[in-house]
Amino acid sequence: MGIVVTAQALLFDMDGTLIDSTEAVERTWRRFAARHGLDAAEILAGAHGQRTVETVAEHAPPGTDVAAETAWLVAQDVADTRGTVALPGAADLLAALPRGRWALVTSAGRELAERRMAAAGLPLPEVLVSADDVRRGKPDPEGYRTAATLLGTDPRATVVFEDAEAGLLAGRAAGGYTVVVGPHEGAAAEGRPRITDYLGAHCADTDDGLRLTLRASATATV
């Protein structure tokens, strides 16, 4: 079963959507938990899709300097990309996309996004909207709306690829056509098309826009 959709631009989340950085992410948050005597599993359960500063503010003990702790965590992330890999087929799909027709919208900071994309062997797009570029992180739609504007297109004419609840909510609120990447089963994923990777993905630049064909997962609904 395949998914076929036409759009003016494609907007991708990064972690869990284009790349698998699970090993590095878990190592960093476990360091943070150990520093403060916190439950690492509890932090990891809610950290995905959020900006680092928001997760720190939620879990850090009272009196913690949130800005300083966030800076420490970001430095840990930037220095540690071991185990970061691209999702199958992602490199080929991105290489086939016209420049200026896709963007990265991530809850990671810009430096970290650049390091992880490089570690995974993926190119950077002309438009990268990071945690450093927005006032409000996901699930707020600011990032996706900003990316669409920078690409010169209406957010409602975009396809948004996301793997986390906050990101799916953000993409939907921006007006994009959301595609779930991976196993996430939250409310925002209900009834949405789903893929597990980009193997077999094909994109054609037509007069009507980008005609994208994806291989749906066995549980996908369109």
Rank of each mutant, 00 (worst) to 15 (best):
Ala189Phe: 02
Thr178Pro: 14
Leu150Asp: 12
Thr149Val: 14
Thr206Asp: 10
Gly175Thr: 08
Glu23Ser: 14
Phe161Arg: 00
Asp39Val: 01
Ala216Asp: 11
Ser107Gly: 15
Ala91Trp: 09
Gln50Tyr: 14
Pro125Asn: 09
Ala189Val: 01
Asp15Thr: 01
Ala189Cys: 04
Arg110Tyr: 03
Ala71Trp: 05
Ala147Gly: 10
Arg116Thr: 08
Leu97Gly: 04
Arg35Thr: 12
Met117Gln: 03
Thr153Ile: 14
Ala71Tyr: 03
Asp20Glu: 08
Gly83Thr: 10
His36Cys: 01
Val129Gly: 04
Leu87Met: 09
Ala113Pro: 03
Gly209Tyr: 08
Ala120Asp: 03
Pro155Thr: 09
Ile19Glu: 02
Asp39Thr: 03
Gly63Pro: 05
Asp15Tyr: 02
Ala119Thr: 06
Ala189Arg: 05
Gly100Ser: 11
Val160Arg: 07
Ala113Leu: 01
Val56Gln: 06
Asp208Thr: 07
Pro155Gln: 12
Ala174Met: 06
Leu214Met: 13
Gly2Cys: 04
Ala34Glu: 14
Leu214Ser: 13
His184Cys: 11
Arg145Pro: 00
Ala7Met: 08
Ala174Glu: 01
Gly182Gln: 04
Pro62Cys: 06
Leu38Gln: 11
Thr28Asn: 15
Pro139Thr: 07
Ala204Val: 14
Leu87Lys: 11
Ala218Trp: 09
Gly49Phe: 06
Thr81His: 13
Val134Phe: 10
Leu151Gly: 07
Trp102Phe: 08
Ser21Lys: 06
Leu169Arg: 15
Asp154Ser: 11
Val78Leu: 13
Pro183Asn: 12
Leu44Asn: 05
Val74Cys: 02
Ala188Asp: 11
Asp163Phe: 01
Ala68Ile: 09
Asp132Ile: 04
Arg51Glu: 00
Asp39Cys: 01
Glu26Trp: 02
Ala120Phe: 02
Thr158Glu: 05
Thr221Tyr: 04
Arg215Trp: 03
Arg116Lys: 12
Leu214Lys: 13
Ser21Ile: 07
Val127Phe: 01
Gly186Ile: 01
Glu26Pro: 03
Thr55Leu: 02
Gly182Asn: 07
Glu54Val: 08
Ala57Met: 05
Leu124Trp: 09
Thr6Tyr: 12
Thr6His: 11
Ser107Thr: 08
Arg194Tyr: 06
Ala108Glu: 00
Phe12His: 09
Asp20Ser: 05
Ala79Gly: 05
Thr70Ile: 00
Thr158His: 05
Ala157Met: 08
Ala40Ile: 10
Thr22Tyr: 06
Glu23Leu: 14
Arg35Met: 13
Arg82Leu: 13
Asp132Ala: 07
Ala90His: 00
Ala79Lys: 10
Pro125Tyr: 10
Val129Trp: 02
Asp15Lys: 00
Glu126Gly: 14
Val134Ala: 10
Asp163Arg: 01
Ala96Gln: 11
Tyr177Arg: 15
Trp102Arg: 05
Pro62Gly: 10
Leu44Gln: 10
Gln76Met: 12
Leu10Cys: 04
Ala9Tyr: 07
Glu190Pro: 00
Gln50Met: 15
Ala187His: 10
Ala79Ser: 12
Gly137Arg: 06
Leu151Val: 04
Val181Arg: 08
Ala131Asp: 06
Thr149Asp: 15
Ala131Trp: 00
Ala103Tyr: 04
Arg115Phe: 00
Trp102Gln: 03
Ala33Lys: 04
Gly182Met: 01
Ala164His: 03
Ala218Lys: 12
Ala189Ile: 01
His59Trp: 15
Thr149Asn: 13
Thr213Val: 12
Glu54Gln: 14
Leu87Trp: 02
Gly37Tyr: 11
Thr55Gly: 08
Ala131Lys: 02
Thr22Ala: 13
Thr149Glu: 15
